[in-house]
Computed example of a mutant assay.
Amino acid sequence: MVMDGLKKRGFPLIGAIFLGVGVVKLLQGGGWIVWFLLAFLFGAFSLFKSNKDGGDAA
């Protein structure tokens, strides 16, 4: 299931929050690049990584 995969990898909560703030700042026309860099440093972009393991083991 999806939740099991997130448990194994560890969900980058702080990075996802920074990514969300970055998107909001981008839409508002503010200083968004700092938030995207923080999101990258805290692992938020690993959420978009494709599953190359071949599927679930369940």
Results as ranks from 00 to 15, higher is better:
I14K: 15
R9N: 15
A44F: 05
G22R: 00
G54N: 09
R9L: 13
A57I: 06
M3S: 10
F48G: 10
A44K: 03
L47R: 00
F11D: 03
D53I: 13
M3P: 04
V34T: 11
V23Y: 09
S46C: 02
L6A: 04
K52N: 11
V34E: 11
A58Q: 12
G31A: 06
R9F: 03
G5K: 14
V2L: 03
G20R: 07
L6C: 02
L19D: 11
V34I: 13
K8A: 08
F42K: 00
L13M: 14
G31H: 07
G55M: 01
L26K: 13
A39T: 10
F45W: 04
G15R: 07
G10A: 02
A16P: 02
F42T: 15
A16M: 14
D56H: 00
G31P: 07
V23C: 01
S46Y: 07
S46G: 06
D56Y: 00
L19V: 04
V21S: 04
A57K: 06
I17S: 07
L26G: 04
A58L: 08
G5S: 12
V23S: 08
A39E: 07
G29N: 13
D56E: 13
V2I: 12
W35Y: 15
A44D: 04
L41W: 05
G20Y: 00
I14M: 14
V21P: 02
G5D: 10
F40D: 10
A44W: 06
L38K: 03
G22A: 05
I14F: 09
W32Q: 06
G10R: 02
A58K: 12
M3T: 11
F11I: 05
L38D: 05
I33G: 00
L37R: 01
A44P: 06
A44L: 01
D53S: 15
L19C: 12
L26D: 10
I17C: 10
G29M: 10
V21K: 05
A58I: 02
L19A: 13
M1C: 15
F48Y: 12
K52S: 11
L6M: 08
Q28L: 05
Q28D: 12
L27Q: 08
L47N: 00
I17P: 01
I14R: 14
G15T: 06
I33Q: 12
A44Y: 00
I17W: 10
V2A: 08
M1P: 14
G54L: 05
G5N: 11
M1K: 11
L26F: 09
L47E: 02
V21I: 15
K25M: 12
A57F: 07
W35C: 09
I17F: 06
K49D: 15
G10N: 05
V23A: 04
L6W: 08
W32D: 07
F42L: 05
G30Y: 03
L38Y: 08
F40E: 07
L26V: 01
K52Y: 08
G15Q: 05
L41N: 00
S50R: 14
F40G: 14
A16T: 15
L41M: 06
